[in-house]
Design a protein around this nucleic acid. Structure first.
Lengths: 111, 111
DNA sequence: GCATAAGCATAGTAATACGAGGTAATCGGA
DNA sequence: TCCGATTACCTCGTATTACTATGCTTATGC
């Protein structure tokens, strides 16, 4: 059940973005949701999560907005931008091609 | 057709190892074969290939042996070790689980 | 003869996941 | 009412690793 940290490299942004694309979400909820959706496989550490969100905001893929929850907690909600949508689409295709290529080498013949 | 360099991280060793597992191979041939098997998708740079081979030899996953080709060229042939076989098996499963988890998040419901 | 391919090596750079550490507010139970 | 757990965010340093650039040698083909 443990995966090498290096595997995740390059996929973090797409994973987060695909959830944010559905509706605006904040950091903490993203970490919970990614864990739930992957059946507990992914557990994004905070040292991964927050820098990634900041990176994406800086790159213009998402836009953040401070908002107060019903009970008064401050949360930073991120929503996807047009640029982010294009990025996600590109990344999704990239992932499909990439994983296909890996499988071609790992298990040749089993197309 | 271009993929982010970060995606490859953590997969290099398994890809190389899966080819070496078939029969002893040397660096240059590995780079050609990986490109062929992946339909031109992967093009391992030398700065990726050779350090990876050294890394794996140091880790005891492969063992290298200098051998002269029919025409006299020196080549370093690598063959897989028992430890390498176990590693490859582990990595193959890890990749399967990992790519499954990614797909769960990227396209939920499409199991 | 000379360009090209075969064949190997490595030092430096950039990207990035994560561990560890820190802050603060809210909630639930004893 | 106190107190731990949960919610919610942030950041610095470290390790890993793919790749660029550079350099070397020998064989092959024109």
């Amino acid at each position: 059940m443990k995966y090498a940290r290096e595997l995740l490299k390059g996929n973090t942004d797409a994973l987060l973005l695909s959830l944010i694309a559905e509706e605006p979400k904040y950091g903490y909820s993203l970490s919970k949701e990614i864990e739930a959706r992957s059946n507990g496989y992914f557990r994004f550490k905070e040292g991964t999560l927050y820098p990634a969100l900041h990176r994406m905001e800086k790159a213009g893929l998402v836009a953040g907005k401070w908002q107060r929850s019903p009970n008064g907690q401050l949360r930073r909600y991120y929503h996807i931008t047009e640029k982010g949508k294009r990025f996600l689409e590109k990344k999704t295709i990239e992932w499909r091609d990439f994983s296909l290529a890996i499988n071609l080498v790992l298990k040749p013949g089993s197309t």
